[in-house]
Design a protein around this nucleic acid. Structure first.
Lengths: 125, 125
DNA sequence: CTAAAACCTGACGTTGACGTCAGAGGCAAG
DNA sequence: CTTGCCTCTGACGTCAACGTCAGGTTTTAG
């Protein structure tokens, strides 16, 4: 829900966002550069964020961890905060989902391999 | 088990290894450069591999997919084909295993997030 | 014998998400 | 006022696993 009135909802500077989300200041600037995160500016030019920016940055981190590029994330952001999607976006979402699932399977396979090796090396003194 | 005699066990060239493992020729050369894969040389200087090199390259791919670096793989190769490990190597194996497990969890979280978004966008026409 | 296909050694290019450094403001405290 | 911390804009550096190109040799098919 967008609070359209509610005079001046506490804005924070970039350092606080970075610390809150556990990333570097540089990272947050990078997100803006990639069109992921828009910030207001103070009269002197400093970036000002709403506090929900922290959650958004955390979301970015999750998606990055899943192997999505910032480009992909910008493409799915409209779905995220408008809830509306066209066919192309839905296809993209499913493609990414499937890709991640495949990656999980790959990792699981590698994990089994490693456990196998660990088991062998544990029995071999 | 290493067959110490067995005159001339069919050696293959780099192209066959690459095709067999589903990677590029360049990749196989890279593995040698990183000390992952040692090849004999023909009199004219061409690389000659034993056919188990294909399985080894596949193993490399699995480890790469799991996020291990070639450096790490060289470190665990001795465990792999000698079965013997010291404390440091065992610690490394477990560290990697835990790291991969954590990554699986991260991916699963991201997957849930995406599925959530997909569910929402599917109900929203 | 010859042309195509495969192989060789460098060596530079690519990609993504930042790190890092330089130089220049801005902002609250004492 | 000044000290110290935060922020700003460029802009180059990083890392890993290759891709790609150049220019030359070797093997294979016909």
């Amino acid at each position: 829900m967008t609070v359209t009135q509610a005079a001046a909802e506490r804005l924070v500077r970039i350092g606080e966002v970075a610390r809150g989300a556990g990333v570097s200041v540089r990272a947050v600037r990078y997100y803006e550069q990639q069109g992921l995160l828009i910030a207001e500016r103070s009269p002197s030019g400093q970036r000002l964020y709403r506090q929900d920016a922290v959650a958004l940055v955390r979301f970015f981190q999750q998606m990055f961890a899943a192997g999505l590029t910032s480009r992909r994330i910008t493409e799915l952001l409209p779905c995220w905060d408008s809830g509306h999607t066209d066919a192309e976006q839905r296809a993209m979402l499913r493609a990414e989902r499937d890709r991640i699932q495949a990656k999980v399977d790959d990792l699981q396979t590698a994990l089994d391999r490693l456990d196998e090796i660990i088991a062998i090396t544990d029995t071999h003194p």
